[in-house]
Design a protein around this nucleic acid. Structure first.
Lengths: 342, 342
DNA sequence: TGCTGTTATGGAAACGATACCATATCCGGT
DNA sequence: ACCGGATATGGTATCGTTTCCATAACAGCA
């Protein structure tokens, strides 16, 4: 039932076919040391004929180096994850590292299992794209004997390098823009606070800007829900049904903004004529949805790429101390927010 | 400069600390053979204290089994790729396989390099999510000494198992629906034909349905372009500027449909009142975009999952012959297509 | 002729696990 | 008292590489 999958061509076979020794073949393979041109040619001929491919398994064991980077993604099928993975994978493959992917489907327990697996596989570094950083996470990461870089969460205070967006400043900037358009009563379509970056930081930025402008925040206008369209719809309903309606809504993600606009349309409220809606993230459909959504643009691809570079530096022993890199943002003014009489 | 990353705890260290032999420790680790409860406890204590984690490197070498599956993705940051990766990764991780990810950014040469890397890493199987299957690909796959499953392309005639959508039938079904709504002049917003599934098969299905209904296809209404919004806009312009406008447009992807509707809006044409537009793929925003897009729904998550199951079966030696699995589709009737006077 | 340094080659010990084999002890049954 | 199976343990070859070391041939040079 069980067949031997790989052909039984080992460096030893190549050596005997080429009438030489394993040492010499190894030198040819690694292009090191002295090998007479004639012998080299003979060996290369045998390799070409047999289709010999050296085993990383043996090589990595001997070298104590796997060239593997473990990457943990809570949910791979999302726009932001996809972009980040694309970015980090482009850097890592360029640096001759392979990506060992663990998609945990938002299950924290499975993230810890993945870390265990990574240790067994002797990865040379770990990239953790996290939504939540529990105490267990912190501990598991501290126990990792290789560099770890956290993306989209701040773990710098735990001594772990992090690459993240300046969510608070971005949300504040967007809120300031809404204020500058004359909006004073602004709803917030937020998410649960266990997502630090999106749930807490973006909300804080929103509150920062309001305070700064001397506008009092109305708790009745601040909703916490999930990331899906239903949550957006429910949130809109709650905002509209709580009493005096706002003139604008800040949704903490573009998906929520889209969901909100759809729900508003169902209730006969046209955006932006009767209500303004802003999103965050600038997913590609934000520029194409009707109305085109005013939002904050992040460069997730670059975020992933930067995190990977940071990790590569750490793996190559260049840096010791934990670093914290804050990525920029950009306000994208489009059509879903309109100026109202102040 | 270079430090030893992993702690020097080997099975041998555990053995001597627990005053026993490597064999016994190995038996405890693998839960096999006889070990006295007392000794087992002692060993487990040492493992807990030292934080010993066995090296897969050594284990895999000895067992000649990496438990790795190589996954090649042309472009990870796209909706369909994300879904498929999520699906296949859920199956693989459940079956205790790890995913070695190679994102090739649509570069065929780098796909071949990835296959080489996979051979070195001694992966136990390969999943290839391909847009293009060149002769070089076919050859490289034939040389792989482990099972290969191709997703979203038909490689069954090359003796390689494939899992794919029935693109042709799906496009035909959607076209038939447009015909049943009374449309007779229908534009096709297609893509380049080197993408067999999307470029060729969907177009063929479109033509099948027209022929079936005795409607002659107008080459001036059939556009080939890229997958991006600009392509959609250019395509719409060409269709509108070529003479007599159609009453409906079939876009071969939802992104193109969205792009088309936006461009039509810019030119003052309202969908569906003045023109109907259908898409394919049912990306999540298709249900939320205004108007909600009539489209074909595929289950990409399941596609990835099925491919992974197929691969697992093959890796475990259950099946020998190449299989071909055709996934279903579902017509999603929404608001972007309206019935016209026949 | 004898040195020294460069070029060239092969033998063998690691790397850290598994698994086969030999051996030892215990215990109940005759 | 002896046997045999079940229980328990340890020694060691092996997986396929790399790398260190020993050795050798040969050149140039005093």
């Amino acid at each position: 039932m069980e067949t031997i999958p790989y052909p039984v061509t080992r460096i030893r076979d190549v050596a005997s076919l080429a009438k030489t020794s394993v040492s010499t073949v190894s030198r040819v393979l690694n292009n090191s040391g002295y090998v007479k041109a004639e012998v080299r040619a003979r060996i290369e001929a045998v390799i070409a004929e047999t289709g010999y491919v050296p085993s990383s398994l043996a090589k990595d064991l001997q070298r104590q180096q796997s060239s593997l980077v473990g990457v943990i993604i809570p949910k791979i099928n999302s726009y932001t994850s996809g972009e980040m993975v694309a970015g980090l994978s482009s850097v890592l493959s360029e640096q001759r590292y392979s990506v060992l992917l663990a998609s945990t489907d938002n299950h924290p327990q499975s993230e810890l299992e993945s870390l265990k697996l990574f240790r067994e596989k002797r990865v040379n570094g770990v990239l953790l794209l996290g939504t939540e950083l529990s105490e267990a996470h912190r501990l598991a990461m501290a126990q990792m004997p290789v560099p770890v870089v956290v993306i989209a969460q701040d773990a710098a205070r735990h001594g772990i390098s992090s690459v993240l967006q300046d969510e608070r400043a971005a949300a504040a900037a967007l809120t300031r823009y809404l204020l500058s358009c004359g909006h004073r009563r602004i709803g917030l379509l937020g998410v649960h606070e266990f997502d630090i970056q999106v749930g807490v930081e973006r909300k804080q930025g929103f509150l920062d800007a309001l305070r700064e402008a001397g506008v009092e925040a109305d708790p009745g206008l601040m909703i916490q829900g999930g990331f899906d369209f239903q949550s957006a719809a429910r949130g809109v309903d709650r905002i509209l049904d709580q009493g005096r309606a706002p003139s604008a809504i800040l949704a903490v993600t573009d998906r929520l903004a889209v969901g909100a606009i759809s729900r508003l349309a169902e209730r006969g409220i046209v955006v932006p004529a009767q209500m303004s809606v802003a999103g965050m993230g600038d997913i590609d459909l934000a520029a194409v949805f009707q109305p085109r959504i005013t939002t904050i643009r992040y460069d997730y691809f670059q975020t992933g790429a930067r995190a990977a570079s940071l990790l590569v530096d750490a793996m190559q022993g260049a840096v010791a101390a934990a670093q914290k890199i804050i990525m920029g943002y950009q306000l994208q003014i489009r059509d879903s927010v309109r100026t109202v009489g102040g």
